[in-house]
């Protein structure tokens, strides 16, 4: 008999476990998507190299742990400034040149950057799968018939904290207001005396710092290898479009929806179907609500 159709007290535990899994998996997706949506929303650049910065974060955590025995959560403290600098560097070196170019040029550039970073990783660190085993990856928490991993809970908590912090930053600080103004109308913002180049630099660096931190946080859970970013980043695009370009709360909500589709779909129909379901969702959103669930109408064309 199909287990999904079976009802009983055990079924409550199953639903509870699936809900917890959705929440925690969604946390990981949100962690990756929040930096992407920031860059997407403010710079109007689709950063196809986003996953590769995630991969670099995973490698940073791997090497810090294996060579120096540093716990990933300590690495997080240095990872954020390191990746902020990496973001600044990449912006100045690569992105500044194409920020005013057409979308095609931007896509070629970021796809090129993605391929280059993957191959640099391949040459430097080979194609081996690198797995670390810090203490937190084997701590299992149990509550009310459900079980979960400590590292996943931490990733979820950081995702929520990061989302809230970025929302507050965008809403209440002067820099945040300037960033939003630039996103709404680049030319008008320039006329108002806003240094848009500085805004873009800052946006890109914050976005990369977020995804670098995400890489460190997922390292106790997933193997690091040159194509590790691809495992998550197609999902992150779905999340961003679902939630609305540049909308942090939307990214969080989108992540949870994608995770729910994945977990529920895998349980009821089988894991082979998961991509079918969330890409159907993706297409559905593009057709019926192109601005995303929380996005402001017309946002997708703003500043283009």
């Amino acid at each position: 008999m199909d287990p999904a159709a079976r009802l009983g007290p055990a079924q409550i535990d199953v639903v509870a476990q699936l809900a917890v899994s959705t929440l925690l998996l969604g946390g990981i997706y949100a962690l990756i998507a929040v930096g992407l949506t920031l860059i997407f929303g403010i710079m109007r650049v689709v950063n196809f190299a986003h996953g590769e910065f995630l991969m670099l974060g995973m490698y940073l955590a791997f090497f810090a742990f294996t060579l120096r025995g540093v716990d990933p959560y300590l690495v997080l403290i240095i990872a954020i400034p390191i990746f902020y600098l990496v973001g600044l560097f990449v912006y100045v070196l690569v992105m500044r040149g194409v920020i005013h170019a057409s979308h095609n040029v931007q896509i070629f550039t970021t796809v090129g950057l993605s391929t280059a970073l993957q191959n640099i990783a391949l040459v430097m660190w080979t194609g081996d799968f690198r797995i670390i085993r810090p203490w937190e990856s084997s701590v299992v928490l149990r509550a009310a018939g459900t079980a979960f991993n400590l590292a996943q809970v931490v990733a979820f908590a950081v995702a929520v904290a990061l989302t809230v912090a970025l929302m507050a930053f965008m809403k209440w600080t002067h820099t945040g207001r300037v960033m939003r103004a630039t996103a709404q109308d680049r030319d008008a913002a320039t006329l108002m005396g806003i240094d848009t180049d500085r805004v873009y630099r800052l946006t890109f660096a914050i976005g990369i710092a977020c995804v670098g931190a995400a890489g460190v946080l997922v390292s106790p859970l997933y193997a690091a290898y040159p194509q590790a970013g691809l495992q998550f980043v197609t999902l992150a695009y779905v999340v961003v479009v679902l939630g609305g370009l540049g909308d942090m709360a939307g990214a969080m909500l989108g992540s949870l929806i994608v995770a729910a589709v994945e977990v529920g779909g895998s349980y009821i129909f089988g894991a082979a179907w998961k991509e079918v379901f969330y890409f159907l969702l993706f297409i559905g959103v593009l057709v019926f609500r192109p601005a995303g669930l929380l996005g402001q109408r017309g946002a997708e064309t703003l500043g283009a």
Binding site: A10, V14, S21, E262, A271, A272
Partner: peptide
């Protein structure tokens, strides 16, 4: 009999929950 794509699988929990019942 379950198949999955090893490059995109991020969570086995739903499958494990299902297997546990079986």
């Amino acid at each position: 009999a379950e198949y999955y794509n090893f490059q995109t699988i991020n969570d086995f929990t739903p499958i494990i929950v299902k297997f546990k019942q079986l």
